Computed example of a mutant assay.
Amino acid sequence: MPNIPFLGALFGSSSSGNMADDQNYPVKKTEGEWQAVLSPEQFRILRQKGTEPPNSGKYNTHSPSSGVYTCTGCSAPLYKANHKFSSHCGWPAFWDAVPGAVGQRDDSSFGMKRTEIVCNNCGGHLGHIFKGEGYANPKDERHCVNSLDKRYMR
């Protein structure tokens, strides 16, 4: 696993159309550099805050008992496989992230209040976090994450 420091009904990109926020992330690339290393669909989701269609991602029903899911953009570890659960929402769901790996920020796009989650290493959009939905997990949280944002590693 790489040693990476950490600093701290919606199928298109968000209504603002902005790229991932230009904050002080360890991994910095220009739009062209991101386009060179990501597929067009990965770029749309990770850098333009898009969403893949429900039930289309390869990790939606993927349920290993061990391993780690890493960021497609920078290979930073994001989620442990044993924190994944079946939420039946159409996207992979996790109840917690690797400590320090995922940042949260307010998202008021599409006329609703949500919390966006991003990779703290490269700023890539991962999805959204929802709290207090009554899931029987230790934190009662659902990190609703696109499959194209991550890779599974044993």
Rank of each mutant, 00 (worst) to 15 (best):
R47V: 05
S87A: 15
A101M: 03
V27N: 06
V27R: 14
D107R: 06
N18P: 00
S65A: 12
H62A: 09
N3H: 13
G90P: 03
S75H: 11
Y69D: 05
K49I: 01
C71N: 03
K80W: 06
P92K: 07
L126F: 02
G103F: 01
V37K: 14
Y79A: 04
N60Q: 15
L7Y: 11
Q42N: 06
C89F: 09
G12H: 12
C144S: 09
G32M: 10
M112R: 04
Y69T: 01
S109N: 13
C119Q: 02
V27S: 05
T70Y: 04
E33P: 00
I45T: 09
G57F: 11
P99V: 07
K28I: 07
P77I: 03
F130T: 02
I45R: 08
C71W: 01
R154P: 13
D107P: 02
S14F: 00
A93V: 01
P138E: 13
H125P: 06
S87C: 10
C122I: 01
A76T: 06
I129K: 02
G132K: 02
P64M: 09
S56N: 13
M112Y: 04
G50C: 12
D107F: 02
V118W: 09
S15L: 06
N120W: 00
D140E: 11
D96N: 15
C89Y: 10
W91S: 01
S16P: 00
M19R: 12
D21G: 00
G8V: 03
G132I: 01
P5H: 13
K49R: 15
S66G: 10
D149C: 12
G32Y: 08
R44A: 10
I4L: 12
P54I: 15
L78G: 04
A93D: 10
Q23W: 09
T70L: 07
G103N: 08
F85S: 07
V118L: 04
P2T: 15
Q35V: 06
Y25K: 11
S39A: 07
A81H: 11
V37I: 15
V37W: 10
G57P: 10
G100F: 07
R44M: 13
G17D: 11
E52P: 04
S87R: 05
K113G: 09
V118E: 04
E52A: 08
C119W: 01
L7H: 13
E133W: 09
R47I: 08
G100V: 04
L148F: 04
P92W: 02
R44C: 03
A136Q: 15
S108F: 05
R105A: 09
K29A: 13
N60W: 14
G123S: 02
V27I: 14
P5E: 15
P92T: 09
V68E: 07
I129T: 10
P77R: 12
L46D: 05
D107G: 01
G127E: 08
H88E: 14
K113D: 10
N137H: 02
K49W: 09
S65P: 00
E116S: 01
S39V: 03
R44I: 02
G134Y: 08
P26H: 11
Y59P: 03
D140Q: 08
T61V: 11
S109R: 04
E133R: 02
N82V: 08
T72P: 00
S65Q: 15
R151M: 06
E33Y: 05
R151E: 11
Q35H: 13
K113A: 11
G50F: 12
G17L: 08
W91Y: 05
G111F: 07
K58Y: 12
F85L: 03
G134L: 03
P40E: 15
V98M: 07
E31C: 07
G124K: 03
